[in-house]
Design a binder for these strands. Sequence first.
DNA 1: GTGACGTGTGTTGACGTCAACATGCATGAT
DNA 2: ATCATGCATGTTGACGTCAACACACGTCAC
Lengths: 322, 322
Amino acid sequence: MARSVSAAEVARLAGVSGQTVSRVANGSARVDPDTRVRVEAAMAELGYRPNRAARALRTGRTRTLGVLVRTLASVGNARMLEAVVAAGAAQDHAVLVLTLADDTPEALAAAYRSLDDHGVDGAIALNEATPTVRAGAAPVFPLVAVDAPPAAGLTAIASDHAGGAAAAVAHLRAAGHTSVHHLAGPAGSYAADERERGWREAQPGARRPDPVRGDWTSTSGFARGRELAADPAVTAVFAANDQMALGLLRALREAGRGDVAVVGFDDVADAAEFQPPLTTVAQDFDLLGRRAVSLLLAAIQGDPDTPDRTLVPTRLVVRESA
Amino acid sequence: MARSVSAAEVARLAGVSGQTVSRVANGSARVDPDTRVRVEAAMAELGYRPNRAARALRTGRTRTLGVLVRTLASVGNARMLEAVVAAGAAQDHAVLVLTLADDTPEALAAAYRSLDDHGVDGAIALNEATPTVRAGAAPVFPLVAVDAPPAAGLTAIASDHAGGAAAAVAHLRAAGHTSVHHLAGPAGSYAADERERGWREAQPGARRPDPVRGDWTSTSGFARGRELAADPAVTAVFAANDQMALGLLRALREAGRGDVAVVGFDDVADAAEFQPPLTTVAQDFDLLGRRAVSLLLAAIQGDPDTPDRTLVPTRLVVRESA
DNA sequence: GTGACGTGTGTTGACGTCAACATGCATGAT
DNA sequence: ATCATGCATGTTGACGTCAACACACGTCAC
């Protein structure tokens, strides 16, 4: 904000009115080609850049998007955020990040208020942030939820968790495992629920063991993994994310069960260097981010027919763990 | 920005002038206690919240901080960002994230411009973003660099990389390893340089092997690790970060060299579940983030004596890999 | 009683932009 | 010649806030 060149100064130099400068700056409107060139030259000479605060005051738009996230410690969230930032930048929108202190509706309402105070044009709520979306007061700006359960009036986008899970199970069954165990994510997480559903639906009920439940962390994966390793009936496990799979692999190896097949979910950068390299389901975070941003921008522009629900395909990456 | 309650409306309800509402909203100024109560009641009744765009236009301050980062794929960066967001929120500042497309001065200058356009009051540049800080045009707003080399006029803050590295080497030497190898980070990275320096200075020159160099990724750690594993003289390795250590551990195990001692750096959440659990140097990201924010806020307030250089201690976390 | 001072509050204007309306001028139809 | 039309551009004012100044009133010293 230490800048100073205003439209008026450009106008003076170009010998036109401020309004004409505004017209040129906004591309639109009818401006004589000669005038436009003259104004653009003046802009360049003075290094003019429109003042966003003034523009925001006048138009109510800030070209800023909010991202609401529970934590960035999860690799998936960090990658999603990065994808959103990139996609936003490509559309000349900046991204304001807000972390949610906890899962209460109050925290969510406070976050909405803060985003609104800062004048975001819209916001994207990432997975962990969404379970409470419906509980909280609706934001006054458009919202796109990533990895949230379908809900009336909520524009949602998600990876095909269930499809990816089913592919993982199918891969394991094709390798001869008649019964595939599941190391699930925390209850209440949409992504965890969907992955569990995909696992469930991909194998006949009779053979299906009960899932065990972790909390996404590798530590929980290790703890649950020790239990699974102790059960001789376990020959194949589908873990709901790569970090839990890491802990699981350690537990299995320590128990001398290195032969148990494991498939993870996310395809984090390190998965290829796990011991053994992890077969996993890759999410296309970049695509997810781009889609989320374009859905949001459409909603901001008042486009009435934004789809309620978008699914982004996932892809099985076969390595050595299964 | 879909709001509407203005100071004028509050003023009308409270029977005062808009200026008095402004005074109450900003806490300061002399206002009669009775009047203040009346205005506050009116604010609460109408749900008044000051319009930041208008405030920004008038004052030039947005209460927004920028964070410049090369990528969020690195766990350390994501954690730093999270810490900065939390620290910013605690001071009623929002955080705008910008990722740098590449390392060129042009990209940096463009990022500065974009941050300035969005009116940030100041910015924090994270490690990978900083090598080019000096090359780019200076930003017009205060800047705090995290993990950047000391430079005139640059407020910098960093973890004690060298100290942590020295502690890692000391730990290995105390365990009887007379020669500690180093799997270094990429050339040109300040953090990598400092960790290498700490390693170098912690052991006598005669015994010190040449470092091998990775690029922070676990894949590079695996590739360099295979070379190290093939050298029978290698009994202990200090890896410049946990992700490379992960690849290194895999290479060692596959080569039947699971006995080689390894220490990493960062203490990522998963390090405890590596095989074996990784001894590593923990960085205090939260403290780093808080300090960076308070340094930046001090600079924004024009505090003349912000220290040029702040060092945040690191801590060795001993697990089973060494 | 006069003047100096302090306190609480109001008035005015400006930050930079853009929407709405107004103006001036050329063109072409009648 | 007259007038409607359309286009390029200018003028005015308002978005909501806050700084600077102005004012009214009370207190106190002399």
